[in-house]
Design a binder for these strands. Structure first.
Lengths: 226, 226
DNA sequence: TCAAAAGTGTTTGGGTTACACCCATGG
DNA sequence: CCATGGGTGTAACCCAAACACTTTTGA
């Protein structure tokens, strides 16, 4: 055919969905898994808490990962290493701003210390909210509570199977510290002995020869990845 | 800026990505897992094999799932029950037809018999290709080989953990038939005894009282879901 | 010497694999 | 009666949970 349904030059004439990135940024705050939310100061959902997000800018972003990084930089004034795609949602009634809205959702787990988001462009108050609270909060904007549920579930499943988020961890750490973080993410206690056996059966860590973590009590061997 | 980056009325002025749906339709053909590919008869990638796909039409589709169904209907002339989101990919250099292309990828596992796709609108020759062959074929269009790899991996993982694709199975079946299908999907033999024990420990099936599958040899009990 | 955290060993049990074996039927 | 697929039982194994125990340190 002359132009075809598959990809005519005219295809660009079809109106396209309003395409956004949303970020589910998780961390361990106050002994539990938490998600970073911002308060919306504009319609729609004005005054409600929501995941940070932004429009995909085809003039600025090389690809989806790039777009997510730019959104993180603009909204939170930080880089997010190791962002991972969570899901995509879209439809007619998602967002009153446009007749059809599409959201690509990324998730990240970031070290709470050393991660200092500041409300950036168009960004309002930021707040860490315990995930289980946010996931159950029906007052979050859009379907963000559902997205938080998904991000938390995937992240916890990874930790449970010892697919550890090394980008989230400090470079070196004691086994006690590591176990504490995993327990905080999972929200349940782990058995020390089992935890350690699994770690070295999976060959995940190696001790850092000289170093010891010296605290109030007996010093602990320090480990690093691999 | 005057109106804000988050959601000014002017936001609609940003050019949006060219948003498409791609379908990874899997089935068991000839004793192995296969994926449905169509030959492209237009640029780009003319002459190469590719996943069936189509543009998201905000005037026709209520949401993403709807869009996927419409694409299936238009391209393959069939409905695809139980489509599931696989992933999203997008970027500048993905598709020469537009400066920035986004693809939402769905996967489905369909019964080979009772599933009769016919090349529809703008659709050319269709062909079932063994997944492992397609996944390794560097000549597939776009990044579709990678998408096939993903779809196969997820599907196999589900079957391996006995998360059975009941929409793919006939309504009733003998255990031998079921095991055969699982083996075909996984590409490796399963132990009969273990397979059956796992099935009834997980309480997945129930026998259909009177019915027996009568074949060349000893008749087999017929089962159904739950 | 005691509290607290580091670190080790041993037992138990769930779930899966591997394999051996019997049963029923059509040819 | 035997080849073939249906169907069952058992032992071994892997992995992780549970828990008891020793060690080392600062206060």
């Amino acid at each position: 055919m002359t132009s075809g349904t598959e990809n005519p030059p005219a295809a660009r004439a079809y109106p396209m969905p309003f395409a956004r990135i949303e970020l589910a940024v998780l961390s361990v705050v106050g002994g539990g898994l938490a998600v970073l939310l911002g308060k919306r100061e504009e319609a729609p959902h004005k005054g409600k808490w929501a995941l940070p997000g932004g429009v995909i800018r085809i003039d600025l972003d090389e690809d989806l990962g790039d777009a997510a990084q730019r959104v993180a930089t603009e909204r939170l004034r930080v880089r997010l290493p190791f962002l991972r795609l969570l899901t995509a949602v879209g439809g007619r009634s998602r967002d009153p701003r446009s007749p059809w809205a599409l959201a690509i959702v990324y998730r990240a787990l970031v070290p709470f210390e050393s991660f200092d988001p500041k409300a950036g462009k168009r960004m309002e108050t930021l707040r860490w909210v315990p995930v289980d609270e946010a996931a159950a909060d029906t007052r979050l904007a859009f379907d963000h509570a559902e997205l938080v549920r998904g991000a938390a579930a995937v992240t916890r499943a990874e930790v449970a199977r010892l697919d550890l988020p090394f980008d989230f961890l400090p470079h070196t750490f004691s086994l006690g510290e590591l176990q504490g973080l995993c327990e905080a993410i999972l929200g349940r206690p782990l058995d020390k002995s089992s935890f350690r056996r699994r770690l070295d059966e999976h060959r995940l860590l190696e001790p850092v020869p000289g170093e010891m973590r010296t605290g109030a009590f007996r010093p602990a061997q320090v480990y690093r990845k691999r």
